[in-house]
Simulated assay, not measured.
Amino acid sequence: MRKIILASASPRRKELLKQLIGDNFVVYPSSYEEPPLQGLSPEELLLKHSIEKARDVSKHFDSGIVISADTSVLYNGEILGKPDSPENAEKMLAKLSGKKFRVVTGLTVLDLDSGKEVSESESTNVWLVELSKERISAYIRTGEPLDKAGAFAAQGKGAVLVERTEGDFFNAVGLPLFRLGKILERFGVSVFDEGFS
């Protein structure tokens, strides 16, 4: 069975990949710094970050398949990353309150044995309910928004803030499982292989 390497420290991505292939992978976070790059669309930027993360981690392994992803919330053409303070989390949630926005992931799968690399982006539409200042404050007090892109977690307590989604829900959490499964199949890896049960 091929070695699968997840180039991410995200516990959410780890749980999602585990859902797909069990415990049959190793986690090796990338040290890539994600610099701001001029002249790229948000989708291109997220793809670029996922590619560089995969290539960075690939230097530490001789064989196997590296999976990396970079996810952000996009609203009115603006990337909303992880808030660096409760105040910024409050601003983000106020901005998204009652609005439709997109969660976009740049996904890269790199086969170290063949040198083949596939990078694609996935987009999910999300509608957040109208949020009062009190509800935003209560949610921020849970601590959940502070390390999440767009300051909310669709799979956590933030689930009660999400009115509906359109597209791959798992993408809104941080790893588009449908697209990842299709890419892995192109690499000759099926999630239904006995080794992944």
Rank of each mutant, 00 (worst) to 15 (best):
G64T: 04
F61D: 08
T71K: 02
S72K: 05
L40E: 09
K53R: 05
L37P: 00
D70N: 04
S58G: 10
L40F: 12
S41V: 13
I51L: 14
E33A: 13
S41Q: 10
R55N: 13
E34D: 14
S41T: 15
A69F: 01
A69K: 00
G39Y: 13
E52C: 10
K48H: 15
P36E: 15
E52F: 12
I67S: 03
S41K: 15
P35R: 08
E43L: 04
Y32S: 09
H49P: 00
P35S: 08
K53W: 01
A54G: 07
S68G: 06
E34P: 12
Q38H: 09
A69Y: 04
D62K: 15
E33P: 01
F61T: 07
E34V: 09
F61M: 07
I51E: 15
E43Q: 13
S50C: 06
S63R: 15
V57H: 09
S58N: 04
L37Q: 10
V57Y: 10
E34C: 11
K48I: 00
S72V: 08
S63Y: 12
L45G: 11
I67P: 04
L40Q: 11
E44M: 09
P36H: 12
I51P: 00
T71E: 03
P35Q: 11
P42W: 06
G64P: 01
K48Q: 13
P42C: 07
G39E: 12
H49Q: 05
S63A: 12
T71H: 04
A54E: 02
E52H: 13
K53G: 01
E44L: 09
L47H: 02
E33S: 15
P42F: 01
K48T: 14
I51A: 07
E44W: 12
T71F: 03
L37K: 11
A54R: 00
D56E: 14
F61H: 12
S58A: 15
E52V: 01
L46G: 03
S50P: 06
S50R: 03
L45M: 13
K53H: 04
P42I: 05
R55A: 03
E33D: 14
S50T: 07
Q38I: 03
E43F: 05
D62G: 13
G64F: 06
L37N: 00
H60W: 08
E44V: 10
V66Q: 03
G64S: 08
K59G: 02
F61N: 08
R55L: 14
S58I: 05
T71V: 04
S50I: 05
G64W: 02
Q38F: 06
D62T: 09
I67T: 06
P35L: 10
H60P: 00
E34K: 13
I67E: 05
E43N: 08
R55Q: 13
R55E: 14
I67C: 04
A69C: 11
D56G: 06
G64E: 01
F61C: 11
K59T: 09
H60Y: 12
Y32N: 05
Y32I: 08
F61A: 09
L46M: 10
S41R: 14
E34I: 06
S50V: 02
E43W: 02
G64C: 03
Q38V: 09
T71A: 05
K48N: 14
I65N: 04
S68V: 08
E43H: 02
A69T: 07
H60D: 09
P35H: 10
S72Y: 00
Q38M: 07
V57C: 11
T71R: 06
S72M: 09
D56H: 13
D70F: 02
H60T: 02
D70G: 01
S63P: 07
V57T: 12
L47E: 15
